[in-house]
């Protein structure tokens, strides 16, 4: 089991360029390490999982075409969205913008009672850009996803549970232990099977059903014990 800590508590774990590079390194390690069975992502400090992108660094690319190239060349969220290692997010405090979006690439989301979720980008004249406009409607019903994306309104932990955004809400003091228990349960299962199950769901849901069934058949066949 691996713990990933977003560790800029003095900046509410805002996603800076440096944190993007570190995350890229950590996620590619996870991707390439066959011994990892499950990873938990959480935020350091008392106040936030992550408050979102570090806005002080906006506009540092020379041109918007350079910004597009940079995103394509080092596609952090592309790596996270295709990672076959099961991921658990342990969310406390603010999970805003890129913070919420990061948790939406996780398979299980556990929230502390003080957790708050929002996609506030439209309040500053832009849209979520770590996949939130695509991952939110894949986890939530359409009306709830559009409310988050177009209004910037925030959800409490209880509202997030009601909307189906998180799997459980627990007292803050129990957050990491609860996340550990979920991760250990996943890690205790045969690794090839949990990875194949994640892949079957995530890749299959975007395929026509007949192709999704073919994918499941291929993955299941590969898992069958040799006779």
């Amino acid at each position: 089991m691996v713990w990933l800590t977003l560790d800029r508590p003095e900046r509410l774990n805002a996603v800076s360029l440096e944190m993007r590079d570190d995350l890229w390194g950590a996620l590619t390690l996870l991707r390439d390490d066959p011994t990892v069975r499950c990873a938990v992502i959480h935020g350091a400090g008392d106040r936030a999982f992550s408050a979102g992108a570090d806005i002080t660094e906006f506009g540092t690319a020379p041109t918007i075409l350079d910004a597009r190239e940079a995103r394509r060349a080092r596609d952090l969220w592309g790596v996270m969205s295709t990672l076959m290692v099961p991921l658990v997010a342990a969310v406390h405090g603010f999970a805003y913008g890129a913070g919420l979006e990061m948790s939406l690439y996780c398979d299980i989301r556990i929230a502390a009672q003080d957790a708050r979720f929002a996609l506030p980008e439209v309040t500053l004249g832009y849209i979520p850009s770590a996949g939130g406009t695509q991952t939110a409607p894949r986890h939530l019903q359409r009306s709830d996803a559009l409310r988050l994306v177009t209004s910037g309104d925030s959800l409490t932990a209880a509202e997030a549970f009601e909307a189906g955004l998180v799997h459980a809400v627990v007292p803050s003091a129990a957050l990491l232990d609860t996340a550990r228990a979920w991760a250990e349960r996943i890690a205790s299962r045969p690794q090839a099977a949990t990875r194949a199950a994640k892949r079957a769901v995530i890749e299959g849901i975007d395929l026509p059903l007949t192709e999704g069934l073919a994918l499941e058949r291929r993955l299941a066949t590969a898992l069958r014990p040799a006779s």
């Binding site: 849209i127 695509q134 975007d206």
Partner: peptide, 21 residues
């Protein structure tokens, strides 16, 4: 944002993420 949600939901996630970008 509205367009990204409605149109992106009709795409594969990979294409939808490129569209959002």
């Amino acid at each position: 944002g509205k367009e990204a949600v409605h149109r992106g939901a009709e795409m594969t996630l990979e294409q939808a993420l490129r569209y959002e970008t």
